[in-house]
Amino acid sequence: MWDWAFTFEILPTLAKAAVISIEATLLGFVLAATLGLVLALTRIAVPWTAWPISVLVELIRSTPLLIQIFFLYFVFPSFGVTLDAFTAGVLALGIHYAAYCSEVYRAGFDNIPRGQWEASIALNLSPWTTFRDIIIPQAIPPIVPALGNYLVALFKETPLLSAIAVLELMQTAKIIGSETFRYTEPITMVGLFFLAMSLVSAAFIRAAERLLNRRPAR
């Protein structure tokens, strides 16, 4: 049933593909974290955008990522911009998770006591300084674990990129499967890889949570 020699033979190919998966994860998450912050800040800074942004976030969160990946991949060419599969995939992952991250940031900002805003106004700080020096340093540390969870979730969504033929882990496993007619080893190895990575990152998130909770009370 299980062929160890074959497993070791395909391991290097899978390892190379795993690098692509991790690249997509990191790029996608940088995009998600930044865009999410921009969305969360915009709805505070420009009050009339709050409603359109919350509808947009709801729209992105309640439709499947796979459809959004297809949409981005196929819709850009009709505007004359051709994106390669990897870019379209990373963009879709980033935008999808930006919607989730913006809600996390919003929770972070909502947890800042009102007095902090009022004190900033009393000290005549500009809105920019208020955000950079007062609000963000207090709002970000408590939400790091939540952001970490989304990083892991995003990582587990990268196999979806195989649907637009990005040569990441799942696509590579499928290609190996269709070439050799042995699906057992490649797909099981992919599963084990994801399991190992999620267990490791869960441990990291717990460690980060402990570290942050140790900070002196404000």
Partner: peptide, 14 residues
């Protein structure tokens, strides 16, 4: 710990 897609493929192919 593993992706939904990996699980579906595992059930489907393996």
């Amino acid at each position: 710990g593993t992706s939904a897609l990996v699980q579906l493929f595992w059930l489907f192919f393996v």
